[in-house]
Amino acid sequence: MSSTTLEPNPSRRGAHAGSASSGKLPGDAISTGPGPSFLRVLNSEFIKFRTLLSTLILLACTVLVVVGFGALSAWGTGQFAEEALRDPQAAASFAAQGGDLAVGVPTSGIAFAQLILGSLGVLLMSSEFSTGMARSTFAAVPKRTPAFVAKLLVVMLTAFVVTVVSVYLAGLLSLPILGNYDLKLDLASSQSVKMLLVNSVYVAAVAAIGMALGSLLRNSAGGIMSLVGLFFVAPIAFQLIPGDFFVQTRKYLPGNTVEPMTAVQHMPDTLEAWQAALVLGAWVVVPVVLAAVVLKKRDV
């Protein structure tokens, strides 16, 4: 940092440009190049996303955990099937479940994907504020909403793609393990594809809710705790607290919308698949819109 020189001409613009604009021109009359279009802002947010090592580590962790849990679950399911062959009682319950346990193996680590990628959603927004980066971001994009939407797209797309890849890899790895126990899993079956897509959309939704929380609270710890509270604590609390209200409202929690959407048959006392999709959609749209409106109004 010792050699600093003042370039003879830091300007790519001619020196006369300055005097030309000393009059009262409208602000945008002197702009000499492109401004922040949505695609450019999206590109900027994607650069920001991939140039943080911590982000890449979290994504790698997601893949590892989901694949690891898939393998573990494949082994566990195989053990269970083996048990069932010896014990007639277990065999009965195994048969009752349609022998379809294997189809849930690839998505068995989804709770962790949701936790990690949801937290990532929180962090990507809250760190803008905790590091002061937000001042640079919103000085470059003073309308703010395009930057928010661009970041939301990057977060949701990444969460979706990473979950699809992780779940598919988990499925591939569990095939030989399940094969060891003579269990069959068809990754191309409609139920497998449905499980893969619904869970990936769900994780993208959790990441979006996380980002909205990070934007509203502007605090990493607070955002992650709120997310954990909503997805991990609330379902348990609703189950433990007696009262008709909690039994009735439990199914509307965002974390309880996946099962109805992936179920082969509709279970009693749960939402229909389309209802669950709408509920999850509302859980995304409400906080995201609120966050966007508040972001536009609040001081950075």
Partner: peptide, 19 residues
Amino acid sequence: SHAAPLRDVGALLDAKAVH
């Protein structure tokens, strides 16, 4: 409301405005 804000106004507001 500037069409290309960064090309019209450059600001150092806070040295810590960086991740």
